[in-house]
């Protein structure tokens, strides 16, 4: 009697355990597939040239060497420096602009500000190809074509939509009463921004700075169109290194890893904020 009564929960528990096992197995399988490129990058980058033949393509290095890393570092270093000179100031300026815009569009609205926000948002989705030829022309006319300042200008301007969006969605969660109270106390817009809004803005700043740093660091299109050899960031230099027929695979892989280290460190340490930026990209707060 009791055993009959207990049978369904038992069976469903067994079924749950089997389903859990299947799910776990599949997830691990996908994990291995996802990590194949990482294995290739690491294993190949430590190989000496003597182990470059196709027969040993998937083997671990027989003798481990840093030679490829040393050469890749030398070739890539100017690009890494340029990328830092681009992404650090660029992401800071983006965050400052974004926080001012987000503040106004959420707490200090004016007639037509919602329409304006929609018009901003479209800027987030435009393929940059559609502005590239005029942009090059304008950069030439402004005298900033080819250099890093021009590249920063482009990234900051085309980053306005996403930065505004992230800050606006964040500031919407600040109670209006706080702003009202500050207003009643006689504080103006800037004063309120400075003393009420900015002190609680740290998370949004983190999200925006990380997002902008990553996209500026990883950008290739703007860099190819707007910069000359002296100012090439890491992505362009990396593409040139890897594109040259004579570059051995070990150096290509080492260079690819080197160019990814800064964004990977950010991802590992601050993944939480990185995720929020990603989610904001989906237009959800």
């Amino acid at each position: 009697m009791t055993s009959v009564a207990q049978a369904p929960p038992d069976r469903s528990r067994a079924r749950a355990r089997i389903s859990y096992g299947i799910r776990l197995t599949l997830l691990i399988l996908f994990l291995v597939i996802f990590l194949i490129p990482v294995y290739v990058l690491l294993a190949t980058s430590f190989k000496p040239l003597t182990e470059a033949d196709p027969g040993q393509a998937w083997n671990l290095p027989g003798t481990w060497t840093f030679e490829a890393w040393r050469v890749a570092w030398e070739k890539l270093r100017p690009g890494l420096v340029n990328s830092f000179l681009l992404a650090v100031p660029g992401s800071l300026i983006s965050a400052i602009l974004g926080s001012m815009n987000g503040y106004v569009l959420s707490k200090w609205r004016f007639p037509g500000s919602d329409l304006l926000f929609t018009l901003f948002l479209f800027g987030m989705f435009i393929p940059y190809q559609g502005v590239m030829i005029p942009l090059v022309q304008v950069m030439v006319n402004l005298g900033v074509y080819g250099g890093i300042p021009g590249l920063i200008l482009a990234h900051v301007v085309y980053g306005i939509p996403i930065c505004t969006l992230i800050f606006r969605n964040y500031y919407v969660t600040i109670p209006d009463e706080l702003i009202e109270a500050s207003r009643v106390d006689g504080a103006g817009m800037l004063r309120t921004f400075w003393s009420v809004v900015l002190p609680v803005s740290a998370p949004a700043f983190a999200v925006v700075i990380i997002w902008q740093f990553t996209s500026m660091w990883n950008d290739f299109l703007f860099a190819v169109f707007l910069t000359g050899p002296q100012s090439w960031p890491a992505t362009v230099l990396l593409n040139n290194i890897a594109g040259a027929q004579a570059t051995p695979y070990s150096q290509q892989m080492a260079a690819a890893i080197l160019s990814s280290i800064p964004t990977m460190i950010i991802y590992i340490l601050l993944g939480r904020f990185f995720m929020r930026g990603l989610m904001a990209g989906a237009l959800k707060g």
Partner: peptide, 14 residues
């Protein structure tokens, strides 16, 4: 978190 360029390099090999 990785650039399309770095991705492209390893996948070109693969």
């Amino acid at each position: 978190a990785i650039s399309f360029v770095a991705t492209g390099i390893v996948w070109r090999w693969l």
